[in-house]
Structure formats: C-alpha cells, structure tokens
Design a protein around this nucleic acid. Structure first.
Lengths: 219, 219
DNA sequence: AGATAATTTAAACAATTGTTTAACATATTG
DNA sequence: CAATATGTTAAACAATTGTTTAAATTATCT
C-alpha cells in the first residue's frame, strides 16, 4: 500500500461531505450507499463512520452546509434594498428564490424536495430552524402587498399560491439542465428561470390585487 | 397448520394489491419491504413473487389500480357539463383535482409525489399514458380562458402557475388529516380543501385576466 | 375418484449494506 | 527520539431483504 497520504482529516471530511451531498440530492437518503460515497470521494469505506459517526449524521451535516452555501450565493432579498416599493422587493425575492432553487450547484433544495415527499425525519429540526425565519419575512411582505384590510387567512392563502408556483417549475427547470435521466413528465418547461420568475411575479401580483380588492368588500 | 384456506388466488392478489398500495404511498418503493406487505395482507412471504413476479411489477400494478379508482371517484370535470362558461368549468376542474389529490383514500397521488421527487423510473410509462390526456384537456381550457391573442407560451406558463398552486397545498392538506407523523413544515394549512380550491380559482382567474390583457398589447 | 393444475407454505439463498474492529501509517507533542 | 494521538486501511460482522425452491394443500377437470 502506497496510497496512505494522510493530511489532517479535514480534507477527507470535506470530500465526503461534498460527494455525499451530491448523492443524497440525486438519489435520496435510502438509495445512497456508503460504498459509492467513499468510492467517489476516494476514501476508505470506514471513513464515514469515523468522521461522521453515522450515515444519518452525515446526511444532516451535508444539508446544513449546502443550505449555508446556497443562501450565501443567492441572498434572499435578491439585492433589492429595503427602501424600495413592495412590488420590487417581491420581485427580487421571487427571482432570488427561483434562482436558488434551480441552481444546478445547489443540492440543498433537491434534498428538501425528497425530504418532503418521503421524510426520513432526520432533517426536521434543522429545516424548521433554517426555513422558518425566511418564511416569516415572506409573509410580512405579502401582508404589506395585501393592504391593511386583509386577514391572516388571506395572507396564508396568497403565500401558499406564490410558493406553490415557485416550487415545481424550479424543480423541473433544474432537472432539465442536468443529465436528462429521471425525467418522466411531458414537456420540461423550455423557458429560462428569469422568464418563469417574471411570469410568477406578474401572475401573483394580479392575484394579490384581486384579493386586496375583495378584502375591502368583506368577501 | 390449519390456516391454509385457499380460495382462488384472486382474493390473495387483491389483498396484496391493496396493502402494497398503501405502504408504497406511505413509505415509497424502496422503504416498503415484502415482509410488511405480506404480514399486513396476511399472506405468505412468497406470495408477492408468485402473484406479481416482482416487487417492481407489483408497484406498477398497485399504482394503476389506484389511479383508476381515483378518477372514478372524482371525475375530472367536477360534474360541470361542457356547455357552461369556461370559468365555471375551470372551477369544477380545480375543485375536483384538489379533492382527488387530498382524498385520504387516494394513494395514487401520494405515489406520484414520491415518484417525482425520487424517481424509480418504473412508473414512467404508465404515468405518461394516464396523465397526458388530462393535461391536454387542462391546457385547452386555459387557452380558452386566455383568449385568442395569447401565445402557446402564455398557456404553458399559466398552466404551470395553476398546477403549482394545487400541488403542494393538497399534499399538506392530506397529511394534516392523517396521523400527524411525517410533518416537518410550520403550520399545516388549517383550511378545508374547498376553501383552498376557491382561493386558487380566484387567484388564478385574476392572473389569467392579467395575462390576457397583456397578450393584447404584445408584452 | 384419480389426475392435473393452481395456490400456499416454510425454508433457504444470495446479494446488499451500515457498522465495527484491529492493524497500520502518519502527525504531533514532550 | 520516544510517546501519544489521530487518521487510514482492509477485513469481517450482523442485519436486512428480494427472490427462489420444493413440499404440502386445495381446487378443477375427466
């Protein structure tokens, strides 16, 4: 054996984290096996349990890191400063959200998506902790757009409409870019993400205006 | 052994199909094991391979049956006859779609959801075959609502907005009804499905009107 | 009833896979 | 340099799990 080239374990750990993240995002927790992670990361089969104690713990660590990197790359406000009109801030937020979700380098959201469909439960705590604050911000922006007469119910329903519009297109758009395995639906949405985001913004602002109007008349 | 009470295999097959469907919907393909299916269906561990050749084939058969039952219970047009104005037909379609998706007895959509997040690939053919026609119908209804000046791009984007709004809420709503395991998000949408559907319809019709207006002016 | 086919059963099989172990190699510290 | 801690390796382990097999049982047909 001549390939024992120990540094200080940091690099090994980092490689595992990186490879594991990609595989978890691609195949999900259950379908990702030690053997492949270690082979692709070029580390020994025992390395995962040495550095991360368990597969479960590696999963959580991989997501946390990915989420941090994702928010760093795509700031939530989309670069639109707090002073600008709510419609503009809304646009910045949606655009950034969709860019973040559809970024092929961003594995974070792929993992969340799988976790929603088939929860392992391991990410519950970390996700709530990370996502709740963002959600609160979105809600207060929607509240602002809806005006003072809108109820909390209006806010929640509109938030739901908006998020729903962002979610699936982003997923499809991302898959379109990757190797086109794993596809099953019909057409894969041949628009770029900015086009989609613009549409979502216009569509949603129209919907919000409608709700705002109705709120005035006590629907 | 006194519990060999063979009928004609039809009942055994049916019980497997029923139990397997529920488990696939709850846990996904990979997390569902022969042992549990057979235990809950009260059949021998070898019965799956005898009656269905393989787990994969059982998966496809279970989905197909569930999809048939689902459409039988919730007809696509929501009971609104073809003659009525498009807005009404739209409402019927959305309401029926959301009822279908959120029906706790309907395992079909739960399976589709998991398949979208983590595709096994086994359902690709059956899904395309079953879902394409429905999608075509929806598109032509949206086209009608958008008016003659709208482009194909407009139709696709609006369809996307509408479907996106239906999807996630239905999933959340369904989970809320079940045993509240597997939940992770914050609030689970405390509205009944009709309220949500009504909102989606109003919100979407407002969005569509906006797009229709813009189409006239060549956006 | 006897022969044949279909179904059910229990056991075994073969492959996968997360984890542990103990020897070995390298770094760090005194 | 010696001693200790840390990282790496290969092998083994233990548990899970989809599938097959052969015998036993029951239905169907002549």
């Amino acid at each position: 054996m001549d390939k024992i080239r120990r540094k200080d374990g940091v690099e090994t750990r980092a490689r595992i984290l990186e490879v594991a993240g990609r595989l978890f995002a691609e195949k999900g927790f259950r379908n990702t096996i030690h053997e492949e992670i270690c082979r692709l990361a070029d580390v020994n089969i025992g390395a995962i349990n040495y550095h991360f104690r368990s597969k479960e713990n590696l999963y959580v660590e991989a997501w946390k890191m990915a989420f941090r990197q994702s928010l760093e790359k795509h700031p939530v406000d989309g670069g639109v400063p707090p002073g600008t009109p709510p419609e503009e801030r809304f646009r910045g937020r949606i655009l950034s959200f969709m860019r973040r979700m559809s970024d092929p380098e961003n594995i974070e959201f792929e993992i969340v998506h799988k976790e929603m469909a088939t929860p392992t439960g391991f990410l519950a705590g970390a996700m709530r902790e990370s996502l709740d604050p963002l959600r609160k911000e979105t809600q207060s922006l929607v509240r602002e757009l809806l005006g003072g007469k809108a109820t909390e119910k209006d806010v929640q329903l509109c938030e739901m409409s908006i998020m729903g519009q962002c979610f699936n297109p982003a997923v499809l758009h991302k898959r379109r870019k990757g190797q086109n395995k794993n596809r099953f639906g019909p057409k894969p949405l041949d628009f770029d993400i900015e086009t989609i985001a613009d549409h979502v913004v216009s569509f949603s602002l129209a919907g919000i205006r409608e709700m705002r109007k109705r709120a005035g008349k006590g629907g």
